[in-house]
Write a protein that binds this DNA or RNA. Structure first.
Lengths: 341, 341
DNA sequence: TTGAAAGCGCTAACAC
DNA sequence: GTGTTAGCGCTTTCAA
């Protein structure tokens, strides 16, 4: 029952050296400065006492915590686990630890979480929260703390970002449908105050035009959130407009599932009556009924890159405000086909 | 560019009081000891300086970090996000922060993560990692740190645990199939060195017997992991045994998906030819083809309870080694039906 | 190659 | 009600 964990001083005492010598012996970087035999003695003493360095004390002294914080809307959204794992894995390599905060897109929570993270003196921050207007942003810039944006392109902030290339991705979706012969293509957009929602909508319009199809505003509906129920509601609204269409580009897979639900209710077959394209290729989208044609985004890699950028910034390697956009890929499955009419 | 964040001493200086007074004023518990006007002055100074208490310094002094660590196999497994959110939400209420570690069921990683967590002086630990033999367990007991087990029942350790009631859950599955008229029921078990795998297998045998059906060992196959591919491999093995069956109880939903895949390959219809029951009711299991009949487990609540227990232990409220088993529920969907033969 | 001394930012007796 | 003092456990000059 070693209720109290051994301290550096105790290790030093046991090894018969001064605490500062023990410190040097224990630390790989300074180990070279100390006599080999002394190192052995210290290491042995540490082992016998089950010594675990107190990282609080170290952090207090060195002003580095080897911790980075990550804000995201909701871990439960299947989009995020792979990103988080990417971040964690890359961070773990460098002996960094991650702390997570779920904001639910709530500015108050966002502020509160950020406060505790700053209190904990995180060495850097990964912001995967998608709200476009973030009031605390200035504070962060003031704090001079490295920040990397995920799934959101920096607007007027000086930070780098990592995301999928939404413009290219929507292009894949639109051109896939066009090549199948679709002309009247609807878009169920995401919330326009989220940067992904806005970007995908704008890209949809741009790609339709570049394909020579004037996008019909009546075939564009915005979902109030990136979830199934909101997606279903938006689909209902789309039908209420009573304008014919043969395909839907959904702003994400969850919204696409909402489409599925409404389509099924109306006895409409996917893809015979209506083709549906999702976005993200979230886990199990290939197991849906029918398997969803969607845009694959390399989420894990996004996480890895974000962590690497954060680490670079912490190490004072200049990374600038680059916007890293990783290439999406079209995953053709069974929710798209040539139009029937 | 306030690169350096304000310190307590600076706040005190600005407010014209001693640091310890400022400390008392800033801390809700000790605030009462301080003159109201002084409190105002201090709070104002803190506000103007953008003061953020350094939690490292505080932790070093108070020996509490308001951090708890959680070990899990893989965040990417859809089982875990709801549990983690439950833990985080409950912890957040109490101003605690969570740090996460993915072990991939690798003992080395497990050890490494645990080491950093102890170095960080977490106030408590939630172990959602399922390996039955955990060598470091003694160390933890030695460290005298509160530990709560999730999805794993304490064998010979003195810690409380929270999990779904596997025995009851498998009972739900078996009795559902029996009530539909199935007699020859197969089981694709999970790895037997994971406590959930073992418990579900044992429960399967017990329930079959209590239903008056002698379980046929040839209809019991063990998957090498809780994932789709391993589940598919086990299903192939099951068919290789060439013993007829009309239903499968899978040890989890992912394995059930593996069954789906193999069944589809063999042109077998679910549920017409074979009924399948999953376990966990993971997200989107209701969107599978066909929607999966499965056992619902209250994952989020499991997380919440685990966090509450950890908090109780930290607060020295005695919780003993209770095994909290939350009630599962049968989610009947379209993968089960009366046997055809 | 090792020791001495100082201090990171905070809290908690204790004294006034 | 407020100030004084000491110290949590560590790293890091500086000196020997």
């Amino acid at each position: 029952m070693a209720l109290k964990t051994a301290t550096l001083r105790e290790v030093a005492e046991m090894a018969g050296v001064h605490p500062s010598t023990a410190s040097r012996a224990l630390n790989p970087e300074s180990r070279a400065l100390v006599n080999e035999k002394t190192v052995t003695k210290v290491l042995e003493a540490a082992g016998r006492l089950g010594y675990r360095p107190n990282s609080l004390a170290r952090g207090l002294k060195t002003n580095r915590t080897y911790t980075i914080g990550m804000l995201l809307p909701d871990l439960t959204n299947p989009l995020f686990p792979p990103i988080v794992r990417g971040v964690e894995d890359a961070l773990g390599q460098a002996d960094y630890t991650l702390i997570l905060g779920n904001t639910d897109n709530d500015p108050d929570k966002e502020g509160a979480i950020l406060r505790t993270m700053l209190s904990r003196r995180v060495d850097g921050l990964v912001l995967a929260t998608a709200r476009r207007a973030a009031p605390f942003v200035e504070q962060l810039a003031d704090a001079g703390i490295p920040v990397v944006l995920v799934n959101r392109v920096s607007e007027d902030v000086p930070w780098p970002s990592v995301s999928g290339d939404d413009h290219a991705g929507i292009g894949l979706a639109v051109r896939h449908l066009v090549s199948l012969g679709h002309r009247r293509i609807a878009h169920i957009g995401g919330p326009q105050d989220l940067s992904t929602g806005l970007a995908r909508y704008q890209s949809f319009v741009a790609w339709m035009q570049s394909e020579g199809l004037e996008p019909d505003p009546r075939l564009i509906v915005f979902s109030t959130s990136f979830h199934e129920v909101a997606g279903a509601a938006a689909t209902v609204e789309l039908f209420a407009r009573d304008v014919p269409f043969s395909a839907i580009v959904a702003a994400n897979d969850l919204i696409a599932i909402g489409c599925y639900d409404v389509l099924a209710e109306r006895q409409l077959n996917v893809p015979k009556d209506v083709s549906v394209v999702g976005y993200n290729d979230m886990p199990f989208s290939d197991k849906l009924c029918p398997p969803l044609t969607t845009i694959h985004i390399p989420h894990y890699t996004i996480g890895v890159r974000a962590a690497e950028l954060a680490l670079d910034m912490i190490a004072k390697r200049d990374v600038g405000a680059q916007a890293l956009r990783l290439a999406p890929a079209l995953a053709i499955r069974q929710s798209t086909a040539v139009p029937s009419a």
